[in-house]
Amino acid sequence: MRAPDTPVIVKGEALLAVENVSLRFGGVKALTDVSFDIRKGEVRAIIGPNGAGKTSMLNCINGFYHPSEGRITFKGETRRRMRPFEAARGGIGRTFQNVALFKGMTTLDNIMAGRFLKMRSGFFWQLLRYGPAMREEVEHRRFVEDIIDFLQIQHIRKTPVGKLPYGLQKRVELGRALAMEPELLLLDEPMAGMNLEEKEDMSRFILDVNQQYGTTIALIEHDMGVVMDLSDRVVVLEYGRKIADGTPEEVKRDQRVIDAYLGVAH
């Protein structure tokens, strides 16, 4: 089913456009007629109470879920049923609400795995671990070491990530997503369960990524202080519907948002 024709969002700089997206699981309506866009280079927060459909929205954007209605346009291209590896190829990176690291692998190998798409040497050279394969391995290791430095996780380079505390795992997961050099980075509650100091570190990393590398970021976060500090624009979901969209100040003043979200302690 196609969504009824709607005015296409006419902003030249939109990197991603979500138009009239609805998503159903049996009887549950996770998303209903949601539209918003993400502009190149901005930090776009997606907020809302638990169960509002924020994670489902990210899952639609990178192809884990396929919207029952509506369409998603990324870099000017609308795909009906995009699969996750295609989203990755297109330049969408992601971290998960519940850390989804490769538990048996070291920090280094986790982040190296993020370089997968950038590595090209063929099976034959990989078998010999020589020539292009070795050159590539060293070259990407250098890139990964920069990320490790940036995130200040040098000391856990060779530790299997399953053994790391939660806060560090979140950091490694960010590193793995950064290794993909994504154009659009989706962060699902990157600071959940962190203490104040860890939150401050993570906020700084997110801002640095955005400013230094120009990466466009979609950020789901509960801590309103963080959202106000980090984001350029905010979209607010409640029960799968969009109830507000604008700058942090605009959203903060919106009565529906105050009723739905800000009034409730999280």
């Binding site: 590896f85 998960f96 690291l101 795995a113 997968f116 798409l117 993909m180």
Partner: peptide, 14 residues
């Protein structure tokens, strides 16, 4: 190993 440890995240690495 990525597919072994977490296949959905592996897919997201491409």
């Amino acid at each position: 190993m990525a597919v072994r440890d977490m296949d959905i995240a592996a897919e997201l690495m491409g």
